[in-house]
Amino acid sequence: MTMEEWFKQVTKRFYTDDDQPKEPDFKCPRCGETTPAKELREGLWVCSHCGYHSRMTARDRIELTCDHDSFTEHDAGMSTLNPIDFPDYEDKIKDLQEKTGLTEAVITGECTIHGEKCVIGVMDSHFMMASMGSVVGEKITRAFEFAEENKLPIVLFTASGGARMQEGLVSLMQMAKTSGAAARFSQSGGLYITVLTDPTTGGVTASFASLGDIIIAEPKVLVGFAGRRVIEGTIKQRLPEDFQSAEFLLENGFVDMIVERKNMRRTIAHLIRLHRSGEVR
């Protein structure tokens, strides 16, 4: 099967012809050009005008990345409580769960990618901007622990607005928890590949997203620590368009490579294979 045929097959799995949802056209936040929804989907949610790799749902990402039917989800029912008794937090979570069909901002599990077995985690910005609270922290931590126990590589697709304010200090501590889990996994000799997707910011950038052995970014995505407007407010001037882009990070030495979505599966599988040869662990 050629890559094109494979993609056609994959995208067909999402939407059959008689099941065309009425979606609005995609207006690119980078170049401002419009792409019809169907065309966007067929182009793997990449802006055909400027190449911006737009946001995907975690489910779509898993379909696109994992071998067909190879994905087994872990901790699917995990749902957050309200650690600082933030007003109306439970209701907000419940609403979002109904609206998105997700229980939280990350889906984790195990799968194969071109036959390579691995642990995978995918964050979904449609769930409260994929902010990290108790559940994201716990699921990511368990994913590292599972990978360590089973001697598997781990691949995390990151996206996040940062720490989950509504969980106060508890959310801040998830940065230490996930980074600690990444450290232990690393000391066990395991391979951790990070894929930075749009947008990866704040407390997730300042924890496990920056700790991969190999850090990949999708083209034109936003990755940074502080919010652009916060910085503009501090320095009282406009920042250049490419500030905090994947390309900016590559230039400054914080990512290993920028990989287009259509090549992501193959790249990840190749990297895993490169670490498997010799089987020294």
């Binding site: 600690g180 232990r184 502080a226």
Partner: peptide
Amino acid sequence: CGVGAEKRGQGEAIARSLYEFMT
């Protein structure tokens, strides 16, 4: 939060601290 801080990897610097202090 500033331009230089981002260029020199504020996120990475904090993440690395968490990682290293934990071990």
